[in-house]
Amino acid sequence: MSKDPIITARDVNVFYGDKQALNGISLDVPRHKVTSLIGPSGCGKSTFLRSINRMNDLVDICRVEGDIKIEGKNIYDKDVDVVALRAHVGMVFQKPNPFPKSIFENVIYGPKIHGLIKSKSDAEEIVEKSLRRAGLWKEVADRLQEPGTSLSGGQQQRLCIARAIAVQPSIILMDEPASALDPIATAVIEELIDELRAKYTIIIVTHSMQQAARVSQRTAFFHMGDLVEAGPTKELFTTPKDERTQNYISGRIG
């Protein structure tokens, strides 16, 4: 596998109550690359993604076993603070979910709570930088005080991305970020993901194999809670090793 991965998962089992959703997942995620997680519905992609910034802690019945290390630190260790962890590992959700506040407030929310803002000019700088990086600046520069919910779906999703990067995370998790969007907005988001790769490590869950092929350098295929295979995207799509992967990418399952 790649050298110096930023995330290493080893034998990760996740349970919802008695039901096991992930069976012994081991995966390395390389730095400054886009990794996509694909697989049929219900195979555990979101579950895996949500264990990486411990969003699963919010589900009472959810239990995680095994190691997930980020920069060599096991994030399920006792001394890990989820608040600090999530500042390093941001998340973008399937449905755009801007806060019912102004665009400006949306972006500044994270930096504010994490104490990254010392002055008003700091705030303005962070907002502009984040919105520029999310490719939204030109469209909203003159309407920063309007509510975030007044934007179109695609713009809202880019606002959510801007909101996530404003905290300066090193990893961004995206759970089907474009599934609620039309093809044009999707193309914009995909382009954005490609640009963000320079500064961030990105893991994206997607149902579209084309999308995985377009944006990611590595792909991991999940099936019924198992990680079937993972590797460079091109390889996985052209010469899959496992029969299940073969079937999935040729459209026979899922």
Binding site: G72, D79, V80, D81, A84
Partner: peptide, 17 residues
């Protein structure tokens, strides 16, 4: 690096309080 993701920082401690 050993202090990664822990609540050592004063600001974080205040937030948890």
């Amino acid at each position: 690096m050993t202090k990664l993701f822990t609540s050592a920082e004063a600001h974080l401690k205040a937030r948890h309080r």
